[in-house]
Write a protein that binds this DNA or RNA. Sequence first.
RNA 1: GGCGCUAUAGCCAAGUGGUAAGGCAAGGGACUGCAACUCCCUGACCCCCGGUCCGAAUCCGGGUGGCGCCU
Length: 308
Amino acid sequence: MLAVCGPTASGKTAVGARLAKKLGGEVISADSMQIYKGLAISTAKPTEEEMMGVPHHMIDFLEPDEPFSVADYVRMARECIDDIRSRGRLPIIVGGTGLYINSLVDNISFDHVDSDSALRRQLEEEAREKGSDFMYERLKRLDPEAASKIHPNNAVRVIRATEMVMLSGLSGEENRRKSRERESPFKPCMIGLTCFDRQLLYDRINKRVDKMLEAGLVEEVRRIYTDFKPKTAFNAIGYKELLPYFNGECTLEEAADIIKQETRRYAKRQLTWFRRDVRINWVDTSNSEQIDGIITNCLNIVAKSEIM
RNA sequence: GGCGCUAUAGCCAAGUGGUAAGGCAAGGGACUGCAACUCCCUGACCCCCGGUCCGAAUCCGGGUGGCGCCU
């Protein structure tokens, strides 16, 4: 298996399709937002041309108001992998959602615990009423080790950890062990794309947002807002940022600046995530016009990895 | 040319004599079921010069820059 990751605007789409062509592969997207239908512009979903005739999986199949999680992702992506392999082709994971990529590549199992939306809602309400101190203190009692690893302010993680214990009766550490019980069948070749010059990456992000605006980002977002109730898909950058503009609280230009800034911060977080994975072979995409050279670098990495 | 106001971190900004709040940005980091989420960590000797005082970002004088008004 080949995996191509990296921050937003680093060139994953272009590289992914080209590598698939060269290697006889198919792309499995690892992007928590491109799974949704109708978010073509806001999530920079690959266009027909960009896909270059290569099959792309895990894209554009969910309604924007449907819930989705890593567990769902891993389950579905595994099916894609099996399917692609059965046809004798190479699965290429391409995406920027680190959690999805790692969970898939490391074969993290989520089967032993469920998620219970009723319990989740109950805990969230409890958090609102009784405060984060109460929530954290209880987690400390239920699962001291998990608590020690989560900052008290991180309400989302505190709730999830609490939920895990309540649902499974197992501590976070025990659950963690179980999730790794089955060793990963993959020996992935991992490629990380980014501009070694951070400023250049940021410039690219800024320009891309401008292009999105020209392509009709505002209309796309407005359409989703009128057709759907706020859900996960609204976490995509571009949605909450455009709301003040729709309400007449700021100009489009101001909203656009926020979108750019949020996207830059997102890219930084992605880099933080990927940098800690020592398996990743980094390729500089600063010179995006030299796409052939970039592909050559990637192919050299693939050759050394012996996955073919 | 005159008069008034002002000068604190990249930006916004508190402090008004006792040894520099806060927010944003930026950088670093964490993150196994909403992850484009959520969360954590990091920063100045207060425009310059001189003076008063045990002690000044805080008071006084001068300089420089900015803002406003007037001629």
